[in-house]
Design a protein around this nucleic acid. Sequence first.
DNA 1: ACCCCAAAGTTGGAGCTCCAAATTGCCGCC
DNA 2: GGCGGCAATTTGGAGCTCCAACTTTGGGGT
Lengths: 241, 241
Amino acid sequence: MATSDPVYLRVVADIRRQIVDGSLPPGAPIPSRAQLTRKYGVGETAARHALRVLAAEGLIVGRVGSGHYVRDRPVLLPLHRWRFHDHHAPFGADIQSQGARATWDWRAEPAEATPDIAQRLRLDDSAPVTRTHYVFRGDGRPVQLATSYEPAEFSEPPAEESSRGLVARLSALGVKVTEIVEQVYTRVPQPAESDTLALPAGVHVLHVERTHWAGDRPVETSDIVIPGDRFRLVYAHSLQP
Amino acid sequence: MATSDPVYLRVVADIRRQIVDGSLPPGAPIPSRAQLTRKYGVGETAARHALRVLAAEGLIVGRVGSGHYVRDRPVLLPLHRWRFHDHHAPFGADIQSQGARATWDWRAEPAEATPDIAQRLRLDDSAPVTRTHYVFRGDGRPVQLATSYEPAEFSEPPAEESSRGLVARLSALGVKVTEIVEQVYTRVPQPAESDTLALPAGVHVLHVERTHWAGDRPVETSDIVIPGDRFRLVYAHSLQP
DNA sequence: ACCCCAAAGTTGGAGCTCCAAATTGCCGCC
DNA sequence: GGCGGCAATTTGGAGCTCCAACTTTGGGGT
């Protein structure tokens, strides 16, 4: 980053550094455009561009009439500890580690496959499926909503469902998972503010949109699809900040 | 999109539409700033901002001194057809479907676990691992480079390796995959042009950066990590456009 | 003590301009 | 016909300004 770099990048780099090293903690106000021009001796254009870049990176938010503020850091979840079979419970579970607390609730219900679901699970329309809603929390704050769909037959036997729960369900899927381990991908998502890539509907490309499940950053709605022969289909949705 | 929307969004929407519906095919030049101001009756600022947004979306590229041009569309791969066990071959494989041709090469080699690899595979430093390089192609063009690491013992027996290849390797991993089906995530990546999110090194959050494996778009380097007890670790790297 | 309003400050849209660096096409010269 | 170099064009950085809409704050005035 020589001094010949664009001026606005100098401002970006400096503010970003302060956010990263903690000089500017979450919630702290960023100097306004006017203040930035004075502080760094740059023009309004550069100051404004710098703020736009930082906002695009998700490090700050601009509130009209108020100012720019440092966003909350994402909740750091030790996700390699999220082992369903290690810590299962009838409804809700939690695991304490490294100071971060990961908990989740889930609820399964019978449903009929919509055309979209049916096609991707390779089932007939209106075929019986099991829909499961999940709420994942990090340090008490919900960080992900997910809805999974799987062929109803995979949820059998229903009597055993409540006792073995997720473990049973996941075990029943073992072989299938193996077969599609390299096929984890997402559909082209539709970000709220802009319909970025436009591809023929239904055509899947290996494409993962910027997605944060952790933290309070704005999460673009995005489907995680694990396709294959009759495999489960997980929809991950964003939460309100 | 009422007429009260920001002017620059009107321009963005119109150009994007033309790119999507094919009026502006890949390689086609986008009107210059000067032309846009006349064509849409907007100021330079709006025209410039519109081009910046489209470039940020990856739909167009700007070449200094020349102009903006529509980028190539991504290669559309029917990825649900990428089934290793359906179409395996000793070295290289291919499957023809829907006009798109997906092929890949791979080469396995013994290696020693680096500290980073060792930690995430829960092995000791310098433990024997099998490193496999993949080249995935769509319509002949390489769309993804990937390197996977797995404990060497998973690659046994070596004699059978060449005959059953990927199938054997994947089968051997079946159980492990089941256990971590919900844990697919990526490390916080480091985009080439900006070190976006800064998190303590080694801390994993459920975070997926914008990643395109298909097409000739610039792909930010990003690791796909499927953690768990001794599971494989896949590094996906971008290719030059 | 409390409430409301007005002034000041801030963001985000939009317009105009100047300039350096790079590209491209064209004109004229050999 | 071929070639070199100049001029027009284009991007991207940077500066300045005006304005509408929205927050915040600090007075009053009741």
